[in-house]
Design a protein around this nucleic acid. Sequence first.
DNA 1: TACGTATATTGATGAGCGTCGATCTGGAGT
DNA 2: ACTCCAGATCGACGCTCATCAATATACGTA
Lengths: 117, 117
Amino acid sequence: MSVDLELAPKRKRPAGEPCCEPVAHPDIEREQAERMARTAKALGDPIRMQLVDVLRRHAGKVCVCELVPLFDLSQPTVSHHLKVLREAGIVGCERKGLWAYYYVNPEALEEVRRWLK
Amino acid sequence: MSVDLELAPKRKRPAGEPCCEPVAHPDIEREQAERMARTAKALGDPIRMQLVDVLRRHAGKVCVCELVPLFDLSQPTVSHHLKVLREAGIVGCERKGLWAYYYVNPEALEEVRRWLK
DNA sequence: TACGTATATTGATGAGCGTCGATCTGGAGT
DNA sequence: ACTCCAGATCGACGCTCATCAATATACGTA
């Protein structure tokens, strides 16, 4: 667990030139990387990708009872995926009586969108 | 496993109106969703996000020996993350002597970028 | 009050992931 | 030949994930 600072191994490079010029940023935006990775991870499942896609196409808010039959999955599983998207801030929901209406939070995708240039 | 088509339960909606108008596309581009989800999943880890970010900033090709010290991780772990990115088609690599140079495959991110509008 | 209905939550199970130390591969220097 | 080094692969570990059936919650209707 301890590191030898003395007796450093002298780094003999095999050839004359170094392998490459040093990389620009030694350690870059870890926070931003974590935020964007969280978003990407939530989108990293085909079901969730399709859920977001449906919600984006459908400008308004969509009821869960319309979403469930689109997939060959149990209702609890769809509910679980919606929860993952909710916790990633990608979608929001609004309950009205018995029903729950979901919608996309466009700002949640903005950062990744911009990063992708 | 079998479904009753007779004796359908009559779907008494609690109120007069249905919960919402039917969703536009009954089942949309599953293939595209799977492709994009695979890309998003590969980006869904902060380390891999930073790796891609470094490679994108650095226009040329970057040697692994420059990448490893950027993270507080063992060399095998970094190598593993690079492999995940490689298998997702997000980065490519080119060996030259002892060293391996990695670079970003911009087309791999294109589809997701366009989908994010 | 009691019942049905739309979603959410729970608990279990099997598969997958991130990480490490150890080992393997193969090019370069002596 | 032998050694050193960069990088990849392997095997094992704990942890997380996707899924389901069963149950809970909470609202509407009679």
